[in-house]
Design a protein around this nucleic acid. Structure first.
Lengths: 175, 175
DNA sequence: ACCTGAACACCGTTCAAGT
DNA sequence: ACCTGAACACCGTTCAAGT
């Protein structure tokens, strides 16, 4: 039942943004009373936290990937994170507006990124913020392309290109 | 009177985010009926549009600055835009969630940026998106530092540093 | 443990009426 | 032109009551 609630919630959020995901609309889409939701996901903040864990949680799966090259692992991690952000940009927006945003899963992702960058550059923090901020900005730009599959694919390809430029700039600095 | 409404609105938005800026709270803070606001700024969407024009409008003032060097002008433009975004990150967030976001002023800013980049790189669009997306992500990160003046200043300085790295990477490519 | 209806304190916005 | 009160159709969440 909890999974069904989260499924319906992410759909409402994708389609209607923050205003589309109301407890009452969510309950109604499941043929249930609004108050019933509180037994499965808690209040609206709890619901959003659960959604964030589900969407961003996949990013860290089997992270010590094929290649031992840290630059390749950095690229893989960022491509996955960007994919998660741009798959549900409205969720990202909603998480951002919380004061203690990105507290849980995302902290794990940026920590892993920092560790990898430490092996590649003398300024791991600076580059981590450049790469993460850029991934956020690029992912959020997907909102303006919602429902436009063609443009969405184009933006995804462009992110890959942009990431290569950024990592080239990083690799060009001496360690 | 219109200016007073906008002043109060941006304050509510900064302090309480999207949920803090309600038409009723805004009216109450001005000792006025909610309906009175509709004569000055229209509905909530109109209010946000007016706020966006005011905040982002300053970015384009006297843009053909001191130096004729396009790289310097690019840097100045982005520093100003980032300053506007990070001064009111909650407004940026709210504008982002609109379908046709950044329609007005921001279009002018990115167009000017594209023109300048055209004189410096063979891939102006790619670099425009890198720089704009990064500015957005970095500016939005200010939300987590709200009320923390020390951290806010640090993030501003870090943006300047990050921008220099990015422009160095851009300049390193052959035109 | 899970679900419910009724209620409370909110929203944005429209409308008809006032000056 | 500007302001108002009342009303409508919504919100999130609490509470007391049911199974």
């Amino acid at each position: 039942m909890r999974e069904a609630v989260l499924d319906a919630a992410i759909r409402l959020l994708d389609e209607g943004g923050a205003n589309g995901l109301t407890m009452r609309a969510l309950a109604s889409s499941l043929n249930v009373t609004p108050m019933s939701l509180y037994h499965h996901v808690g209040d609206r903040a709890g619901l959003l936290r659960a959604l964030a864990e589900r969407v961003y949680g996949e990013v860290l799966l089997d992270a010590s990937a094929a290649s031992p090259d840290p630059l390749v692992q950095i690229k893989t991690l960022l491509l996955r994170y960007h994919a998660a952000v741009s798959r549900h940009p409205q969720l990202t927006l909603e998480i951002f507006s919380e004061a203690d945003a990105f507290a849980g899963v995302v902290k794990l992702i940026t920590d892993r990124l920092t560790m990898l960058l430490d092996r590649v550059t003398a300024e791991p923090i600076l580059w981590r913020d450049i790469l993460v901020d850029h991934a956020h900005g690029s992912g959020l730009a997907l909102i303006s392309a919602w429902g436009n599959q063609e443009r969405a694919v184009l933006l995804q390809e462009q992110y890959q290109l942009a990431l290569e430029r950024l990592l080239a700039g990083l690799a060009a600095e001496e360690k």
